[in-house]
Design a protein around this nucleic acid. Structure first.
Lengths: 133, 133
DNA sequence: GACAAATGATACTAACATGGTATCATTACA
DNA sequence: TGTAATGATACCATGTTAGTATCATTTGTC
């Protein structure tokens, strides 16, 4: 089981690189040189981040991306939601018709508790904290 | 992201049913009637549980399975390990040659902490606790 | 002993998710 | 006007999950 998939991971690294750079605009080509991520894949990821309002893009020659908000305002949970869908650890496999106690199912409740734990951790990790001790 | 896959889920339900039954031996056919799980799939799951020493099997007519240890001694983490491999939330995607700070990577450390949290929860949930308030 | 009903072993398959490519259109700086 | 960038979108490869199919073996019951 993975908590973070590859696209989320790449997104983190790209955002952190952009945020820490002193250049105004960073292009995908530049990111690829630094981060060794396949270019078309990274492009796709940045396009998504652009649509989700974490980046702003500039088209045309000398174009690229800038952060739309500070790294300290971007949280791991945001990125996981974007690339992996909302965190729902507690989905039940048995339909209501089969499992009569879906409302009271203790397994569901216990997993729900774990999910709350994980979520509360992830929503407090911002990207800035990933490179500052 | 799923914390528990379908085979783990089915295994839980089958084990709990066997453990709560007052019959001596439970066959797959019986379980299928009660739990509405596809028979060949459930057979495969029980064969694995047998090999992993959670069940003991009896072949032949009137055969079936019994628990090899009490439900209070079977923990969620055991089953997750059997069907989903060991829980490793913190695997890193970038090779050492690319990511120089693999040893000090803060992301890895933070996810490691979450993994410890989740593990310590899962290893304390036994199957008996799933139907006793 | 024969039959039926069970598990053991194992190979196969279908569907979905993940990780990535490829291509063409559009934009904008120099 | 050329070139280097992003936008949009369709496609593809691989792995994992979920499930089937089949044949062999065992064992209780008549």
């Amino acid at each position: 089981m993975k908590l973070i998939t590859r696209d989320t991971d790449y997104a983190i690294r790209a955002l952190v690189f952009i945020g820490r750079s002193d250049k105004a605009i960073i292009s995908v080509s530049e990111l690829v040189r630094e981060l060794k991520i396949p270019k078309p894949f990274l492009r796709k990821i940045l396009q998504i981040l652009n649509k989700k309002n974490l980046l702003r893009s500039y088209k045309g020659n000398k174009g690229g991306f800038i952060l739309k908000k500070g790294l300290e305002k971007i949280f791991l949970l945001d990125l996981i939601k974007i690339f992996q869908g909302s965190l729902r650890l507690n989905e039940c496999f048995l339909r209501k018709s089969i499992c009569p106690n879906i409302k009271t199912c203790l397994l569901k409740k216990k997993i729900d508790k774990i999910q709350k734990l994980v979520t509360s951790e992830l929503e407090n990790i911002d990207l800035k904290s990933l490179f500052e001790k």
